[in-house]
Design a protein around this nucleic acid. Structure first.
Length: 205
DNA sequence: TCTACGATCTTT
DNA sequence: AAGATCGTAGAT
C-alpha cells in the first residue's frame, strides 16, 4: 500500500484515496484529470489534514461547506475562494478523517483549445499555475462538489506517468495558521516542470 | 442578522 | 501594491 502504480490511462480506483493524505498528495503528481475533452496532468499539490490542522477548512469541525471533506476519500471538494475562484480538492482517507489534497497546478495534455477559451485573454493563458486557474481550465464550479472521481462520466482521475523527482516545501496562502501548520512541508511539485506556482518558496536545497 | 475575511488572480 | 467579489463562520 505504500506506493500504488497503475497502468497509464486506467481509472484510479477508490482504494488509492483511502490512505494517509500525504501519500496520496505525492502520488497525485503525474496523474491525469479528465473532464470532457480536457485532460490535465497534475504538477503541484498541497495536503490538508484533519481537525488538528489549523490551516485546513476542517479546523472548525464539521460545517456545511466542508461536509465533503469529512466523507470517504475519492470525491471532489470544490469551494469558492475570495468570492471569485473555484478551488479543486481531492478528499482522502476514510469517512470522518477530514483530509484533502488541493490541486494547485496542472499541465495541459489535451483539449488545449477549450482551456484557452475558458482562460480568455489573460497573459499566459495555458500556464495553469495556481489553483484558481486549474478549476477554471477544467470548467469546474460548485456543482462538482462531492463528485466521485473514480466513477466514469464527468470529472475523473486516471493514471499518468509518475514524476522522477519531487520538490517539497511549505504551503501557500496559510499565514493565518499556527506556526507549526504554517511551516509544515506539505506542498509537493514535480521538479522537472515549469507548471508550478511560487517556485521560489521551495527550499533552494 | 451582522461583519470580517479568505487554501487567489489580474492589472497597476 | 491593490482591487475584484461573495459565501462562510463566528460573533452579536
Amino acid at each position: 500500500m505504500g506506493c500504488m502504480v497503475f497502468q497509464q490511462g486506467c481509472p484510479v480506483p477508490k482504494s488509492f484515496y483511502l490512505r494517509p493524505v500525504e501519500w496520496v498528495a505525492r502520488e497525485l503528481l503525474g496523474q491525469h484529470l479528465h473532464h470532457g475533452n480536457v485532460v490535465l496532468r497534475i504538477t503541484e499539490v498541497e495536503a490538508y489534514g484533519g481537525a488538528e490542522d489549523s490551516a485546513s477548512h476542517c479546523r472548525f469541525g464539521r460545517t456545511e461547506r466542508n461536509a465533503p471533506m469529512w466523507r470517504e476519500g475519492g470525491r471532489a471538494y470544490v469551494y469558492l475562494c475570495y468570492g471569485l475562484h473555484h478551488l479543486l480538492n481531492i478528499v482522502t482517507g476514510p469517512e470522518g478523517e477530514g483530509s484533502a489534497v488541493l490541486i494547485r497546478s496542472c499541465e495541459p495534455v489535451d483539449g488545449l483549445a477549450t482551456v484557452l477559451q475558458r482562460r480568455g485573454h489573460v497573459k499566459g493563458p495555458a500556464l495553469l499555475t495556481g489553483p484558481g486557474k486549474v478549476a477554471q481550465a477544467l470548467g469546474l464550479d460548485r456543482s462538482f462538489n462531492d463528485h466521485l472521481l473514480y466513477e466514469s462520466g464527468g470529472l475523473e482521475l486516471r493514471a499518468g506517468a509518475p514524476p522522477t523527482s519531487i520538490l517539497r516545501g511549505p504551503r501557500i496562502g496559510v499565514a493565518y495558521a499556527k506556526p507549526d501548520h504554517r511551516e509544515a512541508l506539505l506542498r509537493f511539485a514535480i521538479a522537472e516542470t515549469r507548471w508550478v506556482s511560487e517556485l521560489g518558496k521551495f527550499p533552494s536545497s
